[in-house]
Each structure stands twice: as C-alpha cells, then as structure tokens.
Amino acid sequence: MSAVRVSPFLTLSDLSVAFPTATGRVLAANCISLEIYPGQALGLVGESGSGKSVTLRALCGLVPAPGQVVGGTLAVDGRNVAWGREQRALRGRTISMVFQDATASLTPVRSVGAQLREVLRETTGLSRAAARTEAIALLDRVGISSARKRLAAYPHELSGGMRQRVMLALAIATRPRLLLADEPTTSLDVTTQERILALIKDLQAETGMAMIFVTHDVAVVEDICDDVMVLYAGYVVERGKVSDVTKQPRHPYTRGLVSAVPRLYTPGPLAAIPGQPPDMAALPPGCPFAPRCQWARPECLAVNMRREAATQDCACPFARTGAVPEAPLAVEAMTE
C-alpha cells in the first residue's frame, strides 16, 4: 500500500533460535527469512509458541536467556550485521520496539518525562531543555492531552491506553527506521485498541518507518498490515499480501486460523482447529501441523519442512498442487 518497493533495507535470512530444555534443544524459530522495505507493514501471525515473538526479539537482540540465535544472517542496507554487540547497536536509531505489557515495560519509579528525556539524550545528545521540549512534542504527537503536565506523571497514574501511548512515544523518540510491535494492543479495550492502531498507522505514514507487527488476531493484521507471515511451530507456513492470505488462505493451518476467528456480520458456524498447539519439544517428523490437519496423508511425515518453509510462500506441498480441496472445513466435536 504505502510501501514503495525499491529495495529492502533490512534482510533476515534463515534465522534459527534455540532454547535448551530438559529433553533437548527446541527450535523456537526455524529458518525464518524476511525482508523489510521502507514504509512496509508486515504482520507476523501465530498462536502461543509459534515463534512470532521470538523472531521479533531476535531482530532487536532481546532473545530471553537461555535461548540464543543459532543460525541466520542479518543485513541492514546491504551490510551484514553480526549477532550480539553489533546488532544491539541497531537498537534506537534503526530499530525500536513496543511491548505488549506497557506496565511491565515502563520503569515504575521514574516519571514519564524522565524516561522520555533519558532516551532522547542518550540517542540524540539533546540538551536538557531541548529534550524536555521534544518530550512534550512527542507526548502531544501520540495523543496525550496536556502533555506538559503529564511529563511529571508516573506510569501508575496513567490508564492502560495512555501507558501504551507513552511506550509508543519512547519507541519513536529515536526516529527508528523499523518499529517492532509485539501485541501492543492485546490487553486493551477494543475502542482503545482501535485508536492505538490508528495512531501507529498515522505515525508510520508520517515518518515512513517500516513496522513488524506481531499478533494472534488476524483481523488486526487485516486492518493495519500490507504483508503477512503465518507462523506455526517455529516455521513460516504461509506468507503473502494480507488480502490474499486472509481471503484465500492456502496452507491448511492458515485456513483453520482464518475460519476459527468469529467475524462480525458473518453468520454460520466457526471451524475450530482440532487438537492442541504443538509440543515444541516433541515435534513429529515432517509437517508439524499434520497431526491437526484434516487433509493429512502419510506423505506429510516425509515433508522437508525446513526447505518448504524457507523457500515457498505456502509450506504445504499438497495445497500448492491443489491436492487439498477448497471445501470449507467441517465442524466436529473434538476430544483431547
């Protein structure tokens, strides 16, 4: 939409993130590749444990220990960036992040103004007075009324929506080229969510920054993203333009996900995906979705998932060849 397809400024290739567990190494992200163009909004969709958050965190060097990046390359403006210190240096000017839980992400013991000034002075070297003026402008920009007065407020004095606005102000203070957003509206009321999403879109249009938006809500992706990647068990199972993927999903998991979400003004039964999200420590061979897939066949066990996920827009070879029927999913009572 707003993205001008010149060339990607950030390229992530074959990212793998591993967590050691009692039963062996678990790959939370497996061969994930993505390209980010200026102004693009990319959605990462998946359920808990799909690898969407860990991918986002790897991009800004925040993979929680004991997890670590075990493979993949990151390039910014065509130049390779080594994982670790070199990559962490991207934080601020190039990449900044908004977290799901604003309460836990803001320091409770410092005022909103102090937190904003700190970021501004660290990254832009503004004087105290200039940082204060800029902080007021930022709060004003994210829609906080009487910004001057709010500088002295502590996070606990603000509502959830207000705190999320402060987080956004902190994130855009450094004028990043890429904003990472990890379910920033999940814990908010719909009316507040709608306004925060609108604000993010406006900021994006204004600054031309790119965004990666992680969510479990397909409807939110439809509203604010240009492109989407659907993750399951650490793999990208489908990717494409949002309108294509949500209107004509190809991978059986995406089909299930899209039809499992109740939509307003769309009568008819919901199609639940049977079974449980996968146990990452005990993934089956082949396609990890096969145990829950109603079109599963013996060949699914032999699918080379790393290759499929890394090279194809839809990681199901049978869906690609049309072997998976277009018929809607059946609704059945499920036993666990």
Binding site: E47, V218, L257, P262, A272, P274, P277
Partner: peptide, 10 residues
C-alpha cells in the same frame, strides 16, 4: 489461543 477459542465456543 485462537484455534482453541473456537473449540471451547463450539
């Protein structure tokens, strides 16, 4: 989770 919501609603 979304896929589980639909199961429990059903």
């Amino acid at each position: 989770d979304v896929s589980i919501q639909a199961q429990v609603l059903a």
